[in-house]
Amino acid sequence: MSDEFSALQLILDGDAALFAIVKLSLAVSLSAVVLAAVIGMPLGALLGLSRFRGRSLLVVLLNSLMGLPPVVVGLAVYLLLSRSGPLGTFGILFTPTAMVIAQTILIVPIIAAPTRQTVEDLWVEYRDELTAMDVGPAGRMATLLWDARFSLVTALLAGFGRAAAEVGAVMIVGGNIDGFTRTMTTAVALETSKGNLPLALGLGLILVTIVIAINAAAWGTRIWSERQVG
C-alpha cells in the first residue's frame, strides 16, 4: 500500500488499534467536557450573577485562563499526580484518568467564561420576572443555565474542540502509552517523529473529520431543539 493512503487503509481495514485510539480520544475528551461543564457552568453562572469586590478582576482572570497553554496544565497536573507529588498516592499518573483531569482543568475556563457572559446578559432580561417570582439564587442559576442552553452548546463545543485538539497536556500526563493512553493527537505526534508523515497527516485528517462530525451533530441537535422550544 502506498503511504499516502495508509491512514485511509487503516480505516478501511477496521484497524483495531486505530479504533482503540479514536475511542480513547473521544472517551477522554468527552469525559473532560462533561466534568468541565458540571464545574464550569455553575461557576460561570455564579460569577455572572454575583456582585462583590474584585469581581471584575476575577472575570478578567477567567477570560485569560481560556488561553491556558495545555503543556503548562499538563506539567502542573504531572507534578501533582507524580508519585513524588502531593497526590502521588493515588497512582493515576500515566492513566486516562490523569488525562481527563488535565483536560478538565484546561477547558473549565473555556466553558465557564462564555457561560458567565451568557448568563449575565440573560439576567438583564430575566431579572424582574425572576425576582417577582421570588426565585432564589440557586433557582436563578438553574433557570438561566437552562434557558441559555442553546447558546451554551457553543461553549461546550469550544471546550470539546480544545480538548480533542490538544496534545501538550495528554502527552505529559498520559505518557502516550501504546494501547493505553495514546490518543489521536499523541499518535500524530509520534508518527511525525517517526518520519511517517503521510500516516500522521492521515490520522490528523481522521481527527478533524470526527471533530467536524460531532460539531455538525451538536449543531443539528441545537437547530432541531430550538425549533421545538422556540
Binding site: E125, Y126, D128, E129, A132, D134, T143, W146, D147, R149, F150, V229, G230
Partner: peptide
C-alpha cells in the same frame, strides 16, 4: 412582607424557553 402573595404582570413578560 415576602412577595409570596403578590404577583406582577409586566408589560412585556419574559417567556421562559420551554413549553
Amino acid at each position: 412582607s415576602p412577595m409570596a402573595r403578590r404577583a406582577i404582570l409586566f408589560q412585556r413578560p419574559v417567556m421562559l424557553r420551554r413549553t
